[in-house]
């Protein structure tokens, strides 16, 4: 069997500044080359925390468990080292960086990813090829990073960077949020165009609608920091029709938050 791209082993995560707040409470997950996994769950279930933790955000602390990437334990590795090894996080809210152009950022990040200078001509050729593949114009590349971008532009800019950096693991954090149907289709088609058989993709989403464009092999439901149910694409379809409540009820889960609230 091929080596997994990503393995989460008993992962528990809390907030760096508030160590008492445990968000991820023990997750096991394995993503193999070529697989697309969708992590779904209601707001506050820990989806984005998990995405940021895999990418190495200093906002979170791994209390227990391991993150294994291509056979290496990266739990203690910095975000930039992880990125250079081929982990890419498409941000839910990409940060504006005024004064730094997309071209400048992409050139620096490609250089970092390859560990070598990228000649200007080669870089431009790759940038143009990626823009073409994603049906994007060069204007976007000349603008300041995420500065004054619409919601759709921000997400497309993320996918553009993903296309250029060719990650082995792409984590798409709520890439569908804030997009209208047309923008969602464009972005999804972009992801499909960039997909390679040797890469793994983790899609974090609240709604199933992006999954109609990027069909997952596995769907996991995250609830209060734990994966409470895993299944195939049909699980996402069920959530589309029924929402989360019937599934949670079936599993005998009641929200501790709700229970606490009721007790008051």
């Amino acid at each position: 069997m091929t080596q997994p791209i990503l393995e989460l082993r008993g992962l528990k995560v809390s907030i760096a500044e508030k160590p008492d707040i445990h968000i991820v409470k023990g997750i096991d997950l394995t993503i193999r080359p070529g697989e697309i996994h969708a992590l779904m769950g209601p707001n506050g279930s820990g989806k984005s925390t998990l995405a940021s933790t895999i990418a190495g955000s200093p906002m979170y602390v791994v209390d227990e468990g391991q993150i294994i990437y291509q056979g290496t334990d990266i739990t203690a590795m910095s975000a930039d080292e992880r990125a250079r090894k081929g982990i890419f996080l498409s941000f839910q809210y990409p940060t504006p960086i005024p004064g730094v152009t997309m071209v400048n950022l992409m050139r620096e990040s490609l250089k970092a990813r390859r560990g070598a200078e990228v000649p200007a001509r080669e870089f431009l050729a790759e940038l143009r090829a990626t823009l073409n593949k994603l049906k994007m114009s060069e204007d976007m590349a000349r603008r300041y990073v995420n500065d004054g971008f619409s919601g759709g532009e921000k997400k497309r800019a993320e996918i553009l960077q993903m296309g250029l950096l060719k990650p082995d693991l792409a984590i798409l954090d709520e890439t569908d949020s804030g997009l209208d149907v047309d923008a969602l289709r464009t972005v999804s088609e972009g992801v499909n165009a960039l997909r390679r058989p040797d890469m793994g993709i983790l899609i974090i989403t609240h709604y199933e609608r992006i999954l109609n464009y990027i069909e997952p092999d596995f769907v996991h439901i995250l609830f209060e920091g734990r994966i409470v149910k895993s299944g195939g694409f049909d699980l996402a379809k069920r959530i589309e029709h029924e929402g989360y409540d019937p599934i949670l009820k079936e599993l005998g889960i009641t929200s501790t938050k709700v229970a606490e609230g009721a007790a008051r």
Binding site: S57, A79, F91
Partner: peptide, 25 residues
């Protein structure tokens, strides 16, 4: 912004240099 740049593979110093040059732009 720092985490964003580091998540793109730029180390701490490279990220800061980019942020500062952007800041001065």
């Amino acid at each position: 912004a720092l985490f964003y740049l580091r998540s793109r593979g730029l180390d701490m110093r490279q990220s800061l240099v980019l942020l500062v040059t952007g800041f001065f732009q």
